[in-house]
C-alpha cells in the first residue's frame, strides 16, 4: 500500500511542479534574437574584452543591434571571424589590418641603472602610483609584469636578463589588455608587417635629451635625426620624442642606422650587408621644432642637447 501512496503523491508533486514551471516560463519569457547565438558561436569565445565589450556575448549583442560593423572588430578572431559574423548578419565586413603589441621601452638593467630599490607590492600599478620608478627614467618600464598578468593568451613574458617584457608575435591577438594594464603607457598595438618585421621607437622618454641620456643609454633624446632621414614622412617629433607611424613606415631601416642612441629598434630583419653603400642622405627637411639641433656629428649630439 505504501508504495502506491508514494507513487501517487510523488507524481502529483511532479505534475504540479511542471504546471507551475510552465506558467512561470511563459510569464517571464524574454525574446532574444536567435542571431545573437549564431554570432556568438562564430566568435572565438575567449571573453578577453579586446573588442571593448564585456565578453563575447555582449559583443555579439552589439553586432546584432548595430547598423553596420565599421566600429566593431574582434581582434582575436581577426578578419576571418568578422567575415563570418558579417555573413550571419547579412552585412559588409570591414577589413582591418592585423595588429600586434609592441613594448616601447628598451632600457634593460645594463642600459638604465637603478637609482633605488622598490620593495612594495610587486605590481606596476602600485609602483607607478607611488613614485617615478626604480631608475632615473620616469617614463620607462617598471618591470613588475602587470602586462604579463593581464595577458590571457600567454603572449607576453618578462625577460629575466633585461627585466623587460617581450611579446611573442604568434601568440599575440592584439586584444589590448596589456596596453590598458601598463601604467606607463609603453605598449602599443602596431600594424603587423610581413614576416613580423617591425621598426619602432623603443622609448617613451619625454625628458630633454641630456636628462634622458643620463638616466638611460638607449633613450630617445629627441635629436630629430630620424625625422630628417625618413623618406616617407612616417616619423613625427613631439615632446623630445620621435614616433614612427606604422601606417606610413615602409620599413626601409634608414632611421635605425641614423639613431645615435639605438632607441629605434628593428626586429625580424635579415642581417644587414656591410655598410659600404648606404644611400645618400636626402636633403634636410625643414625642421618644425625649434629645439631640434642642427645636423652635426653623432658624438657631439648629446652634448649639444644637454646645454639646451
Amino acid at each position: 500500500m505504501t508504495i502506491v501512496y508514494t507513487i501517487v503523491s510523488l507524481s502529483a508533486i511532479g505534475t504540479l511542479a511542471a504546471v507551475i514551471l510552465y506558467f512561470v516560463a511563459q510569464k517571464f519569457k524574454v525574446y532574444e534574437d536567435p542571431r545573437i547565438d549564431d554570432v556568438e558561436k562564430a566568435l572565438p569565445g575567449a571573453n578577453c574584452g579586446g573588442c571593448g565589450f564585456a565578453g563575447c556575448r555582449a559583443f555579439a549583442e552589439s553586432c546584432v543591434k548595430a547598423s553596420d560593423l565599421s566600429d566593431l572588430f574582434c581582434p582575436v578572431g581577426g578578419n576571418d571571424c568578422m567575415t563570418g559574423v558579417a555573413d550571419i548578419l547579412g552585412m559588409e565586413a570591414v577589413v582591418q589590418t592585423p595588429k600586434v603589441a609592441v613594448v616601447r621601452c628598451n632600457g634593460g638593467c645594463d642600459q638604465r641603472p637603478k637609482t633605488n630599490q622598490f620593495d612594495g607590492a610587486s605590481s606596476c600599478a602600485v609602483a607607478a602610483s607611488l613614485y617615478s620608478g626604480e631608475t632615473g627614467c620616469q617614463y620607462g618600464c617598471l618591470s613588475h609584469g602587470d602586462c604579463v598578468t593581464a595577458c590571457d593568451f600567454d603572449a607576453i613574458h618578462m625577460n629575466p636578463e633585461t627585466g623587460l617584457p617581450e611579446v611573442i608575435d604568434d601568440k599575440c591577438v592584439a586584444c589590448g589588455a596589456c596596453v590598458d594594464a601598463c601604467p606607463k603607457n609603453l605598449i602599443e598595438l602596431r600594424k603587423k608587417a610581413p614576416k613580423d618585421r617591425k621598426i619602432y621607437v623603443s622609448c617613451r622618454n619625454e625628458d630633454k635629451g641630456g636628462v634622458a641620456k643620463k638616466s638611460c643609454s638607449v633613450a630617445c633624446i629627441g635629436c630629430s635625426k630620424c625625422f630628417k632621414v625618413c623618406p616617407f614622412d612616417a616619423i613625427t617629433m613631439a615632446n623630445n620624442l620621435a614616433y614612427i607611424d606604422a601606417d606610413k613606415c615602409k620599413l626601409c631601416r634608414k632611421c635605425v642606422v641614423e639613431c645615435p642612441t639605438n632607441a629605434i629598434v628593428e626586429l625580424n630583419f635579415p642581417p644587414r650587408k656591410p655598410k659600404t653603400d648606404l644611400p645618400p642622405k636626402p636633403a634636410a627637411k625643414t625642421v618644425e621644432k625649434a629645439a631640434a639641433p642642427k645636423e652635426s656629428a653623432t658624438d657631439s649630439q648629446t652634448e649639444n642637447n644637454e646645454t639646451k
Binding site: 612594495g120 607590492a121 605590481s123 600599478a125 602600485v126 602610483s129
Partner: peptide
Amino acid sequence: RPLLDYIRLGKG
C-alpha cells in the same frame, strides 16, 4: 600582506 598598497591604488 601589502594591504594599503593595493587599497591606495584602488582608492585612486
